[in-house]
Write a protein that binds this DNA or RNA. Sequence first.
DNA 1: ACTGGAAGACGTCAGTCTGA
DNA 2: TCAGACTGACGTCTTCCAGT
Length: 268
Amino acid sequence: MWWHQHNLCFRHPVDEDYSGDLEEKVATIAETDESAESEGVIDSHKRREILSRRPSYRKILNELSSDVPGVPKIEEEKSEEEGTPPNIATMAVPTSIYQTSTGQYIAIAQGGTIQISNPGSDGVQGLQALTMTNSGAPPPGATIVQYAAQSADGTQQFFVPGSQVVVQAATGDMPTYQIRAPTTALPQGVVMAASPGSLHSPQQLAEEATRKRELRLMKNREAAKECRRRKKEYVKCLESRVAVLEVQNKKLIEELETLKDICSPKTD
DNA sequence: ACTGGAAGACGTCAGTCTGA
DNA sequence: TCAGACTGACGTCTTCCAGT
């Protein structure tokens, strides 16, 4: 596998190895002037150990950015929506925000907690917490919502991704929610469970274990995505650093040549 | 049109790191 | 100490493109 950019051609056998090559390149260019005559040979085992214990890309890049003014920082987890309602922004950092048909805001926080806030309220007031779970073997796309707060008013309806609508289908101690397409009256599946009771039976324990596994896989999936995004940003940063250092190096060499000419004029 | 390789994105597992 | 975050490694899938 070969990878072309800036008229350079880097070998790129496995995607994970490329950033290592680039790091080496940056280090080599940065140290050319001082340590050109140093041994420069690192024991491969030691090097592997160092690499395997490297801190996260975010950390590295942020350290780089503090050393080098031009290097951008990797942003912390940012919310998807720019126009976050003020009464939600002060709470946990949401990953998704939806607005209900009655004007309420629903924020799904990182931990899977759903927060419902009334537009007129000032943050904490009117907030209801729900817990998102995916238990057992749900049908594709289905989401289990565990209702942890009692709704005081009547039927509630809010929008979820995919142009679907969550409708409160029953009231009372066991409110039920259904996901429906907004234009059809046919429910696509009941996805609501009441507040969780105690888990005792083997089946319930198995379901809980499955649920935990699903949750872990989901989080890991998101973490892997985020990790790859950071890595790409990190590699971009290294590439631009290579370019800058190469230019600097060239300038210094030219300067050195000029000074050499001045200090030791030719004797005819 | 078909095919095979390159490249990129993704999901998962396993191991390490880190903060409480 | 432990749970959660992070990341390398691996396999799979999809898309693109050049060659036939």
